[in-house]
């Protein structure tokens, strides 16, 4: 139930998180990881859509999900979320302000990865659309992880399997022989993103992948809202 939504309050949260980020070495270091990875790929001259999808997906998982999770969990751990929710700020304003900052940071890191890996983006508008949908998915997953953990430490434990599945599973694909697992993997957001980017490069049809990716976005946002509603009373 939202009676009034205030951009001024969203902006206040965003500015606060931006100031905090500059002094948060844990988060800054985490944000830099995908950039090192991309720079390394650039040095060995890997610039196909398939190779470059690794650091970009990695950036989305790390910057979108991991950093968002750490930021949400820290607000709970330090009791600052309680303070915000006792102010005129609504839950939506708090989480949108936060997601805006994580979102902007993720875009910066993704752009940095593309530049460092010297990747030429195929079909910019559709590529950008895929990144935006992916941002929604990973920010929602990050918020969810943050809500499920009580401390920042816990997010890195709960987040590990998420990072392995969503961030790195594509790299191990060649080692997997089980058909069922491979089929399931085709529906993971990271695989869908890679399909889209490879498809955009080669001119193949990417409509279905976009559709499934959008379903992922809707489901992850819904799951986050449901978990928040369940958790708020304890």
């Amino acid at each position: 139930m939202m009676t009034t939504f205030s951009m001024k309050r969203v902006n206040a949260i965003f500015v606060k998180d931006w100031k905090d980020l500059q002094r948060n070495s844990y988060v800054l270091f985490t944000l830099a990881l995908p950039l090192f990875f991309a720079a390394w790929l650039g040095r060995i001259g890997a610039d196909s859509a398939e190779m470059i999808s690794f650091p970009i997906v990695f950036a989305l998982v790390i910057a979108g999900a991991f950093v968002q999770a750490a930021m949400v969990a820290e607000e709970k751990e330090k009791n600052t979320l309680r303070g915000l929710l006792l102010s005129p700020a609504s839950v939506a304003e708090v989480f949108i302000g936060k997601s805006l900052l994580s979102g902007v940071m993720t875009l910066v890191v993704v752009a940095g990865c593309i530049w460092l890996a010297e990747f030429s983006v195929p079909s910019l508008p559709l590529f950008a659309l895929s990144i935006v949908i992916a941002l929604v998915i990973f920010l929602a997953i990050g918020t969810l992880l943050g809500l499920l953990s009580r401390t920042v430490m816990e997010t890195s434990i709960i987040g590990m399997p998420v990072m392995l599945i969503f961030g790195m599973s594509s790299m191990f694909k060649s080692m997997i022989t089980n058909e069922a697992i491979l089929t399931v993997m085709d529906y993971l957001p990271n695989e869908l993103l890679m399909n889209i980017w490879v498809g955009l490069e080669s001119g193949a049809d990417v409509g279905e992948s976009f559709l499934i990716l959008t379903v992922w976005a809707a489901v992850s946002v819904a799951a986050t809202v449901i978990v928040y509603r369940k958790r708020r009373m304890d």
Binding site: R9, L86, A89
Partner: peptide, 22 residues
């Protein structure tokens, strides 16, 4: 249980709430 942002300065902590309360 209403915590402060410990990496932020006193001023920045209060500036946030000044904006939230308008």
């Amino acid at each position: 249980n209403s915590g402060l942002y410990d990496r932020l300065t006193v001023q920045d902590n209060l500036a946030l709430y000044a904006d939230l309360y308008d």
